[in-house]
Amino acid sequence: MRLIRHASALLLLLVLAACASGGGSSSVPQPPDSDASVADYLIGVDDIVQVTVWRNPELGVTVPVRPDGRISVPLVGDVVAGGLVPEAVARDIESKLAAYVRDPQVAVILTDLRSHEYLSRVRVTGAVRQPVSLPYRQGMTVLDAVLAAGGLNEFAAPDRASLFRRNSSSGATTPYAIRLDRILNRGDLSTNHRVAPGDVITIPERVL
């Protein structure tokens, strides 16, 4: 009798596992973390950067990058920003501020990506009410971009939508599946990917 109970329990577990794998959303490739794309962004001329110094708010400043690639920071003067990542600029400012401030802790944040305006945009095309090219904003998701395009039109095939992302090192473009039908109708956010600068979201029309 005990053997039969164990066999029944094992069979029940197998059935439940099969139902879970078949009834849930299928496993689809996930795009790489979009935060990495932002972290690797090189500051350019006309970008707006915000410099903050912990416990020294009077040393903070929000300025555009000048044509010579520099910004002006209180106490330390001109600092090279163009062609560098924000983290490198922050460390440079810290080293210069150390002569005036004890153990300075500096953060450099890009608040407006102007130098790479088109490279940093997110585009939504296909069966939406208003195809759109949006400035990238940190934390933006597929759903944010689609809603900014006015949502889907009556001809959309939301279960066949895709996000296309270009690899900056190899130049190859990789598609990632988006199940907009599940995002919009079921609240299933498993494919509500965070977008990255340069992403293209395409929603095809359904076959009539």
Rank of each mutant, 00 (worst) to 15 (best):
I4A: 15
G44P: 05
A157C: 04
V101Q: 07
R5Q: 15
S133G: 14
T111P: 02
V106F: 03
S115D: 02
L208W: 01
I43K: 01
P74W: 03
V28M: 01
I4M: 14
L180I: 01
V73K: 07
L59D: 02
S115L: 06
G151Y: 05
T191M: 00
D46Q: 12
S8N: 09
A7N: 08
T125I: 09
V106K: 04
A18V: 11
R166Q: 02
Y118C: 10
L12E: 04
T125V: 10
G24C: 12
E154R: 12
Q105V: 10
L59E: 03
L59S: 03
P74D: 04
T62R: 15
P158R: 04
N153K: 07
G77Y: 06
D33T: 13
A161M: 01
D47Y: 14
A99V: 14
E205N: 12
A156W: 00
R129N: 15
R137Q: 15
P31F: 01
A107Y: 07
S72M: 11
G151D: 04
A17C: 13
A9L: 15
V200I: 13
I178M: 00
N153L: 07
S34T: 11
I109M: 03
L208C: 01
L10A: 15
P67G: 07
T191I: 00
D181V: 00
A98H: 06
G198N: 07
A148L: 13
P57M: 06
A172G: 03
I201G: 02
S95R: 09
I93A: 03
R114T: 11
A149T: 09
L180P: 00
Y118G: 13
G24M: 10
A156D: 00
Y100Q: 14
V124A: 03
I109Q: 03
V200N: 01
P86H: 03
R114I: 14
V85W: 06
G77C: 09
K96Q: 15
I109Y: 02
T52L: 05
A99H: 15
A18T: 13
S8H: 10
I48T: 11
G187N: 07
R186L: 09
